[in-house]
Amino acid sequence: MAKTLGPVKRKFSPWTDAAEKPFIRFENVTKRFGPFIAVNNLTLDIYEREFFSLLGPSGCGKTTLMRMLAGFEAPSEGRILLQGADLSGVPPYRRPTNMMFQSYALFPHMTVEKNIAFGLEQDGLPREEIRARVADMLKLVRLENFAHRKPNQLSGGQRQRVALARSLAKRPKVLLLDEPLGALDRKLREDTQFELMDIQQELGMTFLIVTHDQEEAMTVSDRIAVMDKGEIVQVATPAEIYEAPNCRYVADFIGDINIIESRFAGSEGQMSRIVCDSFTALVDQPCGVVPGTAVAFAIRPEKIRIALEPPADPAVNAVEGEVWDIAYLGDFSVFVIKREDGFTFRAAQANMARLVDRPITYGDRVWLSWTPDAGLILTR
């Protein structure tokens, strides 16, 4: 049986079908602002009905990429295609896209229903159609009882829903979301992420979201493009990004991880042996480099088991160290384990029971162990 990399959000993967044509295509796109290159010769395909995330730190080019699709910026080189049609020269108001901004940009003097209706009125739609669409949007975002309130009478989450409804009312082919949940508190942001997913699947629309919040991208996306310095480093599903990052940058950017400088010592059957300063480990992964090559061994804290006794199974990898620090986070605890050579591991343990007879605490000598398939070798 083939190995899998975590669950998928839904049975939807048009990018795996060679016969599928991309809905949006960035083709060798470069964007310069004077001498600064914001986007560098980037090619990317996004498929219809996909919830796609552009993820990266500030200044990586993700918002510039979205603004070029919306028509607010023009590429310096390359083309942007939507359903095979080149968008060059098409003004923003003529493009079948709509953008929801982080600030929401609601009209404070208008009621909720007037805010939603504004764009439709500007397009000259018949009054009855406007009324029907506004009613549909209010129902979709569950604000029927707030139609006559003004933005200052709403909570942050409700204002976010109004902005979403206004963006969807014009029925764009692509909804662009620029850090849409950044102003919400953590709990509300988490709840709204699931609401966005439900709305996107209910409408069958293509959503493109820009975010620097990795948890947000992992939650809502069918696929994620991780960006750095105007380039795409990896495009994959959330599970693939997390479990099989293609380089140190992606591994370190997504989630918490231990990255250990090592050397490739050779293959043992299907396994690879890596050598660190004071221990060796087997990794269930082929490694296409010659023995002696510098590599990095990467393993997530939750893949490491922590115990007061050495593991009974000789097939697992194990190292010993001292508990140096502990972060109790409620649902799990993170332990910082310092080894005699000075290297520190981070290991996470779920708090399965409210009370334990002998909790691991500061100063304890402990054993860390992991199976050969828990970590991976990074060659770049």
Rank of each mutant, 00 (worst) to 15 (best):
L65D: 01
L125W: 12
G119T: 04
T97R: 03
R95G: 04
S76H: 10
E113A: 03
F118V: 04
L81M: 15
T64W: 08
G84P: 12
L106V: 04
G56W: 09
Q122T: 07
G89W: 14
K62I: 06
V112I: 11
E73W: 10
F107K: 00
L82D: 02
R94I: 00
S88C: 12
G59K: 11
L65I: 07
E121P: 00
V90C: 01
A74C: 08
V90F: 06
M66C: 03
N115C: 04
S58G: 06
S76A: 09
K114I: 00
N115S: 03
F107Y: 15
K62Q: 08
L69M: 06
G89N: 12
G119M: 07
R79P: 02
A105W: 07
L120R: 07
A117S: 15
V112C: 05
H109A: 05
R67I: 01
L125H: 07
C60K: 12
F107I: 00
Q122A: 12
G124M: 13
P126I: 08
G119P: 08
S88Y: 13
A105S: 14
T63K: 11
A74E: 15
Q102F: 12
P108L: 01
A74V: 14
N115R: 07
Y93K: 11
G56F: 13
F107H: 04
P126H: 13
F101C: 03
L82A: 00
S103W: 11
F118Q: 02
K62F: 14
E77K: 13
A105E: 06
I116M: 10
Y93R: 03
C60T: 13
L125M: 15
L120H: 09
I80L: 05
R67C: 01
G84E: 01
N115Q: 02
P126G: 12
A74Q: 15
K114S: 07
P75C: 05
A85D: 12
L65T: 15
L120E: 04
T63W: 14
I116G: 01
C60G: 10
G71E: 02
K114E: 15
M110P: 11
M110Q: 09
L120C: 05
G124Y: 12
K62L: 10
E73F: 11
L81S: 08
L69C: 07
L55T: 08
E113H: 10
T64R: 08
K114T: 06
E77D: 11
T111A: 05
G61K: 08
N98Y: 11
D123K: 14
G59L: 12
T97D: 00
E77C: 00
